Amino acid sequence: LPLEERVTHFRDMLLERGVSAFSTWEKELHKIVFDPRYLLLNSEERKQIFEQFVKTR
Score class of each variant (00 low, 15 high):
Val7Pro: 08
Tyr38Val: 02
His30Ser: 05
Glu45Ser: 06
Phe10Gln: 01
Phe22Thr: 13
Met13Gln: 06
Glu44Gln: 12
Asp12Leu: 07
Asp35Gly: 02
Gly18Asp: 10
Leu29Gln: 14
Val54Glu: 01
Thr8Asp: 07
Pro2Gln: 15
Gln48Leu: 12
Gln48Thr: 09
Tyr38Lys: 10
Pro36Val: 03
Asp12Thr: 08
Ser23Cys: 15
Gln48Lys: 09
Glu45Gly: 07
His9Phe: 07
Thr24Ser: 10
Leu41Arg: 04
Glu5Pro: 03
Thr24Tyr: 10
Asp12His: 07
Glu4Ile: 09
Phe53Glu: 00
Trp25Arg: 06
Gln52Ser: 11
His9Tyr: 10
Glu28Thr: 05
Met13Phe: 02
Gln52Tyr: 02
Leu14Tyr: 08
Asn42Asp: 13
Ser20Val: 03
His9Asn: 13
Leu40Met: 09
Val54Asp: 09
Glu16His: 01
Leu15Phe: 09
Gln48Val: 12
Asp35Asn: 04
Arg17Tyr: 13
Thr56Asp: 15
Gln48Tyr: 08
Glu4Ala: 08
Ser20Glu: 05
Leu29Asp: 06
Phe34Thr: 14
Ser43Thr: 11
Arg46Pro: 02
Glu4Ser: 13
Thr56Phe: 09
Arg37Leu: 00
Glu16Asp: 14
Phe53Ser: 03
Pro2Lys: 15
Phe22Ser: 13
Glu4Gly: 04
Pro36Ser: 07
Arg11Ser: 03
Arg37Ala: 00
Lys27Glu: 11
Val7Cys: 05
Glu5Asn: 15
Glu16Ile: 00
Arg11Glu: 07
Ile32Ala: 01
Pro36Cys: 01
Glu16Gln: 14
Val7Arg: 14
Lys47Leu: 10
Arg11Lys: 11
Val7Ala: 13
Phe53Met: 00
Phe10Pro: 10
Leu1Gly: 15
Ser20Asp: 11
Val33Ser: 13
Glu44Pro: 05
Trp25Ser: 05
Leu14Asn: 00
Glu44Tyr: 08
Leu40Thr: 00
Trp25Ala: 05
Thr56Ala: 13
Gly18Asn: 12
Gln52Ala: 08
Thr24Ile: 03
Thr24Lys: 02
Ser20Tyr: 01
Val33Trp: 08
Thr56Asn: 13
Glu28Asp: 03
Tyr38Gly: 02
His30Arg: 09
Ile32Leu: 06
Arg37Phe: 05
Lys27Ala: 14
Lys31Met: 06
Ser43Gln: 13
Glu4Lys: 14
Phe34Lys: 12
Val19Leu: 00
Val54Ala: 07
Leu29Arg: 14
Glu51Lys: 10
Trp25Asp: 00
Phe50Arg: 03
Phe50Gly: 02
Glu5Val: 08
Glu28Ser: 04
Glu5Trp: 03
Pro36Phe: 07
Ser20Gly: 10
Glu4Val: 06
Phe34Met: 12
Gln48Asp: 15
Thr8Ala: 13
Phe50Glu: 03
Leu40Glu: 07
Glu45Tyr: 05
Phe34Ala: 13
Glu45Val: 01
Leu40Val: 01
Ala21Ile: 04
Gln48Phe: 07
Thr56His: 12
Pro2Glu: 15
Arg17Ala: 07
Val54Phe: 12
Val19Trp: 02
Lys31Asp: 10
Pro36Ala: 08
Leu14Ile: 08
Leu15Asp: 12
Glu44Lys: 14
Glu51His: 12
Arg11Leu: 08
Arg6Ser: 01
Glu51Phe: 10
Leu3Thr: 12
Asp35Glu: 04
Trp25Gly: 01
Leu29Ala: 08
Arg6Ile: 15
Thr24His: 09
Met13Arg: 03
Met13Gly: 01
Val19Lys: 08
Glu44Asp: 15
Arg17Leu: 09
Val19Ser: 02
Glu5His: 13
Arg37Glu: 00
Ser43Ala: 13
Phe53Ala: 00
Leu3Ala: 09
Gln52Arg: 06
Lys27His: 04
Gly18Arg: 09
Val54Asn: 06
Leu14Glu: 03
Glu45Ile: 10
Val54Pro: 01
Pro2Thr: 15
Leu3Gly: 11
Val54Met: 06
Val54Ile: 11
Leu14Thr: 06
Glu45Asp: 09
Arg46Asp: 09
Ala21Thr: 08
Phe53Cys: 01
Thr56Pro: 14
Ala21Asp: 02
Arg6Leu: 04
Val7Met: 15
Val7Trp: 05
Leu1Ser: 12
Phe34Gly: 14
Arg46Trp: 13
Leu15His: 09
Glu26Leu: 05
Thr8Cys: 08
Asn42Tyr: 03
Leu15Ala: 10
Phe22Tyr: 13
Lys55Met: 13
Arg6Trp: 02
Val19Asn: 09
Lys47Val: 06
Thr24Gln: 06
Asn42Gly: 10
Ala21Met: 03
Pro2Trp: 13
Gly18Glu: 14
Leu41His: 06
Ile32Arg: 06
Ile32Gly: 02
Phe50Val: 01
His30Val: 05
Tyr38Met: 02
His9Ala: 13
Val54Gly: 04
Phe22Glu: 13
Leu41Asp: 00
Glu28Val: 03
Glu28Trp: 00
Gly18Tyr: 02
Lys31Gln: 02
His30Ala: 03
Pro2Cys: 15
Leu14Trp: 12
Asp12Ala: 09
Pro36Asp: 05
Asn42Pro: 06
Trp25Met: 11
Arg37Tyr: 08
Ile49Phe: 07
Arg11Pro: 14
Glu4His: 13
Met13Leu: 08
Ile32Phe: 07
Phe53Pro: 02
Phe50Lys: 01
Tyr38Arg: 03
Gln52Met: 07
Glu16Pro: 02
Asn42Glu: 13
Leu14Ser: 01
Glu26Gly: 04
Leu29Tyr: 15
Leu29Gly: 04
Gln48Arg: 11
Thr8Pro: 13
Leu40Ala: 06
Val33Ile: 14
Phe22Val: 07
Arg11Met: 08
Leu14Cys: 05
Phe53Gly: 08
Thr24Asn: 09
Arg37Pro: 02
Arg46Ala: 12
Leu29Cys: 08
Ser43Pro: 13
Asn42Phe: 04
Phe34Ser: 14
Asp12Lys: 12
Thr8Phe: 10
Phe34Tyr: 09
Leu15Gln: 15
Ile32Lys: 01
Lys47Asn: 06
Trp25Ile: 08
Trp25Leu: 02
Ser23Ala: 13
Gln52Trp: 04
Phe10His: 13
Phe50Trp: 11
Ser20His: 01
Trp25Gln: 02
Leu14Asp: 07
Arg46Phe: 06
Gln52Asp: 14
Lys27Met: 01
Glu28Tyr: 00
Val54Arg: 09
Phe10Ser: 00
Val7Gly: 08
Leu1Tyr: 15
Asn42Lys: 12
Asp35Thr: 01
Glu51Thr: 10
Asn42Ser: 13
Glu45Trp: 07
Phe10Ala: 03
His30Cys: 05
Phe50Gln: 01
Phe10Thr: 03
Arg6Ala: 13
Arg6Met: 10
Lys55Ile: 10
Pro36Thr: 05
Glu44Met: 15
Thr8Val: 10
His30Asn: 06
Leu29Thr: 10
Gln52Cys: 08
Leu3Ser: 03
Glu51Trp: 02
Phe50Asp: 04
Leu15Lys: 11
Ser43Lys: 12
Val33Leu: 07
Glu51Val: 03
Phe10Glu: 00
Val7Glu: 08
Glu5Tyr: 07
Thr8Gln: 05
Glu51Ala: 13
Asp35Lys: 06
Leu14Met: 12
Arg46Cys: 04
Lys27Val: 08
Gly18Ile: 10
Arg11Thr: 11
Tyr38Ser: 01
Leu29Asn: 12
Leu15Thr: 12
Lys47Arg: 13
Tyr38His: 08
Gln52Leu: 07
Leu41Phe: 05
Phe34Cys: 12
Arg6Gln: 02
Pro2Leu: 11
Leu40Trp: 04
